[in-house]
Design a protein around this nucleic acid. Sequence first.
DNA 1: GGGCCTCCCTACCACTTGGTAGGCAATCGT
DNA 2: ACGATTGCCTACCAAGTGGTAGGGAGGCCC
Lengths: 213, 213
Amino acid sequence: MVETVADPEAELSVRERIVAAARRQFAERGFAGTSLQAVADAVGIRKPSLLYHFRSKDILRRAVLDDVLAHWKSELPRLLAQSRSGKDRFAGGVGALVSFFQADPSRARLIVREMLDQPELVKQLLTEHVRPWTGLVVDYIRMGQSMGQVRDDVDAESYVVQIATMVIGTVATGEVSRSMISGDREDGVAAQISELVRLARAGLFNVRPPPGA
Amino acid sequence: MVETVADPEAELSVRERIVAAARRQFAERGFAGTSLQAVADAVGIRKPSLLYHFRSKDILRRAVLDDVLAHWKSELPRLLAQSRSGKDRFAGGVGALVSFFQADPSRARLIVREMLDQPELVKQLLTEHVRPWTGLVVDYIRMGQSMGQVRDDVDAESYVVQIATMVIGTVATGEVSRSMISGDREDGVAAQISELVRLARAGLFNVRPPPGA
DNA sequence: GGGCCTCCCTACCACTTGGTAGGCAATCGT
DNA sequence: ACGATTGCCTACCAAGTGGTAGGGAGGCCC
């Protein structure tokens, strides 16, 4: 029995559907707070069938984490391409990073949870998959510094990490922190993100051409 | 009912020791990932004794969260006093906020976890306890804007939330994000924090007197 | 003293958890 | 045609969970 062909989810393999369901639940209730029973229910199979595809809960956890990082990694080139030159593209790049996580907030929440639950593993995985790319950004910023376009008091590496922390944190805890903004105004998300981009920009570029030149 | 107000440097009450142990464990392993058995062991009592002081695990959770927020709230005036005027004090204020959470990172980690686990409750508690104080900061920033000292493209509310997100996120996930900074250089923490302060500052103040006037 | 309250204990319980054993139908390679 | 493999199932289990029952030692007030 197969579901409707029009539904994009219908074409996913059972493995993929398990990973997707697990990601959502791990993100929402945490790893320890999620039972295999609940994941199996969400997929529409029985628990032992789930354990046939993933031999233990820990293996499933790892698969979910790998999946999120793989998606992130595969999106990075596209995101970076948008920030390759100038201030306008830079704003677009940060915005695109935000949209990547915002498109499925469970990605951000999962990463935050795993950073808390297994810092050593996440540290290793990020170093392996994401760091090479951030290295490109760091080089780009340093180039901008040598050309006088970028503030020279910027610590490029710390800057990148800080912006990433802000982006992921903003998406993951967005609902809560947004409630601190003026009651519950409609444009909370937009305001928060535009302030994020503004902060990132103000912290990076010289406001106007250096006075000496 | 608190009986320890006049106690000079006496040992903590059992209740307080339970809350402290629970905070550490909830922060480290999460609420669902922590058993009452483990908390009781850390305190050095049996599980039913723990349940004598807190009638359910959920009540303990709430007590832990209240405790953290109460400490935060009570520290806020002192932290704000340091940022009342000018750029130097501002840096001190943000730095002080960082130190507050860094003094016991389990506070930051617990708040992040609870923002993920029970966003509605945390939203309500933050609005009740913390928001009045951030309101003061917002007013202060707006005053600075009317005096031309602060950039006028700053959305004061979003700015404050964004900085707080960055501070809490930096402390909570510090170990991991720091590993993205150049191998594992010794001053990772300091570099990260100083970049945080620099970002906050660059995003707030006019770099030099406004050009038009 | 005697009753009472505080605080901690041992013993126990119903329930859920991750995981295993083994069977059954469809599909595949040859 | 037919054994092996795949993918799912029912039935089960040992361990651990949050929580309860009830008892006992010590201090406090009359």
